[in-house]
Computed example of a mutant assay.
Amino acid sequence: MAATTTPEENKRLARRFPEEVATEGKVDLIDEICAEDVIGHNPLGEIHGRDELKDHLESLQTAFGEFSATVEEVIAEGNLVAMRVTLQGTHAGEFMGVDPTGTEFEVVNMVFTRVKDGQIVERWVQPDMLGLMQQLGVIEQPGE
């Protein structure tokens, strides 16, 4: 069994997902930083295992070109890491039944990551879906 990691080590590990996997497109890094039975929770549903997580990330990369996830703040306590992340990109492919609009967007994303034995075992991802859909023109902004 691997040694327990420190909150600082957990912060470095959790940051690798938005910075390297999402922004740099290194989807195969999931095999290194995530447990085989990793669980992901997001507004579109639950993801189980590395392969499902890779498929999900690849579909997001197709939907949102020029995508970046910038970590703004990180807080860790024990085996849990909380991050505020800014997501930016261009709606370049189908997403949630919406054809590509070519629209650029920027939304806030809250991510909680649970680490065990030096790997990510669970993630909760909560992007501002309302803000995203408003920016893509799918939902009207208040006052329009």
Score class of each variant (00 low, 15 high):
2 A>P: 15
2 A>H: 10
3 A>R: 12
5 T>Q: 13
5 T>K: 08
6 T>H: 06
6 T>E: 04
7 P>I: 10
9 E>Q: 15
13 L>S: 08
15 R>G: 02
15 R>F: 01
15 R>A: 14
16 R>M: 11
17 F>W: 15
19 E>D: 11
20 E>L: 07
22 A>F: 14
26 K>M: 01
26 K>N: 10
27 V>Q: 02
27 V>R: 00
28 D>H: 09
28 D>F: 03
29 L>V: 08
30 I>D: 04
30 I>H: 00
33 I>R: 04
34 C>T: 06
35 A>S: 14
37 D>Q: 12
38 V>I: 14
39 I>A: 05
39 I>V: 15
43 P>Q: 05
45 G>V: 05
45 G>T: 06
46 E>R: 12
47 I>H: 02
48 H>L: 09
50 R>G: 01
52 E>Q: 15
53 L>E: 07
53 L>P: 03
57 L>G: 12
58 E>G: 01
60 L>T: 09
60 L>V: 09
60 L>D: 07
61 Q>D: 10
61 Q>I: 07
67 F>A: 06
69 A>I: 05
71 V>G: 04
73 E>V: 10
73 E>G: 05
73 E>C: 03
74 V>D: 00
77 E>M: 00
79 N>M: 05
80 L>C: 04
81 V>Q: 04
83 M>G: 04
84 R>T: 12
85 V>W: 02
86 T>N: 05
87 L>H: 13
88 Q>E: 15
89 G>Q: 05
91 H>G: 02
91 H>L: 05
91 H>I: 08
95 F>I: 06
96 M>T: 13
98 V>H: 13
102 G>E: 00
102 G>F: 06
104 E>P: 02
104 E>S: 13
106 E>T: 14
107 V>Q: 01
110 M>Y: 09
110 M>S: 11
112 F>W: 10
115 V>L: 04
116 K>S: 13
116 K>M: 08
119 Q>E: 15
120 I>G: 03
121 V>G: 02
123 R>L: 13
124 W>H: 08
125 V>P: 04
125 V>K: 02
126 Q>V: 14
126 Q>C: 13
130 L>M: 13
130 L>S: 07
136 L>M: 11
139 I>M: 15
140 E>F: 07
